[in-house]
Design a protein around this nucleic acid. Sequence first.
DNA 1: ATTAATTTTTAGATTTGTCTAAAATAATAT
DNA 2: ATATTATTTTAGACAAATCTAAAAATTAAT
Lengths: 222, 222
Amino acid sequence: MFSLSEENYLKAIFHLELSHKNGVTTNALSEEMETKASSVTDMIKKLSEKELVRYKKYQGVRLSEKGRKAAVNIIRKHRLWECFLVEKLNFNWDEVHDVAEQLEHVKSDKLTKELDRFLGFPKTDPHGDPIPDVEGKFYKTPRTLLTECDEGEVAVIVGVKDSSATFLRFLDKNGIGLGSRLKLLHIEDFDHSVEVEVGNNKLHLSKKIASNLFIRVSNENE
Amino acid sequence: MFSLSEENYLKAIFHLELSHKNGVTTNALSEEMETKASSVTDMIKKLSEKELVRYKKYQGVRLSEKGRKAAVNIIRKHRLWECFLVEKLNFNWDEVHDVAEQLEHVKSDKLTKELDRFLGFPKTDPHGDPIPDVEGKFYKTPRTLLTECDEGEVAVIVGVKDSSATFLRFLDKNGIGLGSRLKLLHIEDFDHSVEVEVGNNKLHLSKKIASNLFIRVSNENE
DNA sequence: ATTAATTTTTAGATTTGTCTAAAATAATAT
DNA sequence: ATATTATTTTAGACAAATCTAAAAATTAAT
C-alpha cells in the first residue's frame, strides 16, 4: 500500500498539523523528518499525486481525508504496540518508542485487530496519549497541564507532553508516573516553578517540567 | 545492521544450504527469492564483501559463521512471532507466515528476549519447526516422515515439511494437526499411498501428503 | 574433445528516496 | 517600494536493489 517513507511522512504531517493549523511547511517537515527541504518537496509531490495530501507550491501541505485515515492508522498501531511492549514485555515507558516505530509499519489488519483485543482495547498508550479506534476517532479525555493548576489543588498525572527518554527517566527518578497524585503546594512567582508533594516527598519542578505534564484536577478524597 | 533485502537473502541461503550441501547456486537462490539471477549475483557480492558469505565466481555461496548467526537469528525471530500470533492473537497456522515475515525484521534484542520469555520459551513453532536459542543452537527432537512408518504403527504428528497455506488448510479440513494420533492401517503397494485412522475416521492420504508429515512413532498406550 | 545447452556474470538502465547547488518565490526590513 | 533574507522548488547526481540483454564460464551431450 504505502512505502515506509510515505508512512513516516504521513505520520509527521499529522503530528505537525496539530500546531501548524494552516498547512505544514516544507521546513517544518524537513526538521521533523531530519531530511533536507528538497527531499521533502519530492515526497510531497508523490503524496500529492496519490491524493494523500493537498498541496500548492510554496503553500505547505495538509492531509486529505484519505491521508488522515492512513496516518491515524499508523498512530493507532504505534500506540497499541507501545501498550504491548510495556504491559506484556516488561519494557519501560522510555524504551518503547524506537521499537514501536518499527512495529507500526507491519501490514496486517487482523494483526492490529487481534492485538487490540489481546490488550483489552486500551484507550491510552503508556504516555497517556489516546489510541484512535478503527474508525480513526480519538476519544479525548479532558486534561490540562500542571501549569494550569492552582495552589492547594491535587492533580493526577494522566499523560506527558514530551515523551523523550530523557524526560521520562527524569520522572522515573523522581517517582512520577501515570496515576501519580501531586498536591500543588506553591507556585513561585519569580519563575513559575512549582513545589509539589508526591507521596511523602516534596519536589521542586521547573516551569518547563510542569508544562510537559498532563493532569486531571482531582478531588482530595477521590 | 543489515538491510531488509540482505536479511532475506541470508535466510534463503540458510534454508537452501540444508539441501544444497556443497554451496547454494545462483539459480536456486533466484528461484527462492523470486528475482533474476543477475540480481542474485549483485547481492551475493555485497554479502561477500561484508563477509557474511564465502563466494567464488561460478561456485555458489555458503554462509560464513557470521552469516549463519545472522540468518539463525532471523529464523528465531520468525518462529517466535509465529508462536505469538497463534497462541496469543488467534491466528491459524496457515495465516502466520506473511505477518511473521514482516515481524522478523524488527530490530531489538530486548524485544526478542522478552517475547521468548512471554511465550514461555517455546521450543517449536506452530508448524513443529524447532526454534533456535539465543546462541543459534537448534534442539532437534527425533522425527521421521509418515512415509517411514510401518503398517499397524501409531504416529503422532509433530510437524509439517510443507507449510504452505494450501497444505495446512487441507490438514485442517481433515482434522489433522500437531499432536494428532494416526494409526497406519495400510500402505498401498501400487502408489505408496496410505490408509490411516484418525479419531474415528479413516482417511486415505497420497504419498505426497504422507511425505510432508513429520511424525514420532508412538506406543499404542502412551 | 568439440559442440551444444545451461548457468552465471557483466554492463547498462530503472526506480525510490535521498542529496547538493542553484534558481525561483515569498517574507521581512529599511 | 525596494533590497535583503529566508524559504521553497528545480535540476542533476547518487546509492540500493532491481531489471534486461549480452557476454563469459561451466556442464552435458554427442
